[in-house]
């Protein structure tokens, strides 16, 4: 924020020199999109977790029952879904750490925008490491 915006105006008065419309400090920028993505990825992970606890519980039923469900996780369409799921988890994890830094690190709020792009960068690196490995595993199963 520039000096003119924080300067000697009356509380609540808009800065006469500000070219930006009021209310866009947060809305539509990195802060909002990280929040939106955090919610969407969180919902997706939660519903997968419900299913994942139930499918893993099949180990208590029989080896055949568990293996039957696991084989459905190995088909290519599910493989793409798993890649998306890991993408959601990686974003939620890195952005969650960003939120903690915004809350507890004194310079967190100042660097929240920079940290959003760090999150995106870490996410890209993670997915470059994970996606090829996983997709090769999944698609090499095709035709066997």
């Amino acid at each position: 924020m520039s000096k003119t915006e924080t300067g000697s105006h009356a509380p609540g008065a808009l800065s006469p020199t500000s070219k930006r419309p009021a209310g866009t400090l947060y809305r539509g920028n990195e802060g909002m999109w990280s929040w939106v993505l955090h919610r969407i990825t969180g919902i997706a992970i939660f519903f997968f977790l419900l299913v994942h606890i139930l499918d893993t519980a099949l180990i208590r039923v029989s080896p055949e029952a568990y293996n039957a469900v696991m084989s459905s996780y190995k088909n290519p369409i599910m493989g793409l879904g798993e890649t998306a799921l890991v993408g959601a988890i990686a974003f939620h994890a890195f952005n969650g750490l960003r939120i903690i830094l915004v809350d507890f690190w004194t310079k967190g709020p100042k660097y929240q925008k920079v940290m959003f792009y760090v999150v995106i960068g870490l996410w890209v690196v993670t997915m470059l490491g994970f996606a090829p490995r996983h997709l090769i595993n999944v698609f090499s199963e095709v035709g066997n």
């Binding site: 893993t56 180990i59 080896p63 568990y66 293996n67 696991m70 996780y73 190995k74 493989g79 798993e82 890991v86 988890i89 994890a93 994970f130 490995r133 996983h134 595993n137 999944v138 090499s140 199963e141």
Partner: peptide, 23 residues
């Protein structure tokens, strides 16, 4: 969770290796 994903999906045969015997 990163540990879980790494051990189950990156090491060995990845998802192909997950079955009753693996668990």
């Amino acid at each position: 969770i990163f540990g879980h994903l790494f051990v189950n999906l990156m090491l060995g045969d990845g998802i192909k290796g997950i079955d009753f015997a693996f668990v």
